[in-house]
């Protein structure tokens, strides 16, 4: 069983990397791109537990380790 976890800077937080990417895209002619937010994507391989238990653990892992809730939000899905 695998979990996919996305960690993104909060909307209220300035994302200087995303902004720089957006500027680069604009200079390449991709004028339609008005904003870019850069985040992180994790793939966790889990073993020996139910889907519900996995969801509980991934929630904890995301909250305590993968994301810093002062500046980031997270979401995850459990995939087969």
């Amino acid at each position: 069983m695998k979990a996919h976890v996305w960690v993104m800077p909060k909307q209220s937080v300035l994302d200087p990397q995303g902004k720089t990417i957006q500027h680069a895209l604009a200079s390449l002619g991709f004028a339609a791109v008005k904003d870019v937010r850069q985040g992180k994507f994790f793939v966790l391989d889990l073993d020996g537990m139910s889907r519900d238990e996995a969801a509980k653990q991934v929630e904890r892992i995301s909250r305590d380790v993968l994301a810093n809730l002062v500046i980031e939000d997270f979401r995850f899905v459990i995939v087969e």
Binding site: P9, V13, L14, P16, T20, N68, V70, I71
Partner: peptide, 17 residues
């Protein structure tokens, strides 16, 4: 100390990258 919660707040990448 920020990550451990012993001090409040967080640091982001420098504004100028």
């Amino acid at each position: 100390l920020l990550e451990s919660g012993l001090l409040p707040g967080a640091v982001l990448r420098n504004a100028g990258l």
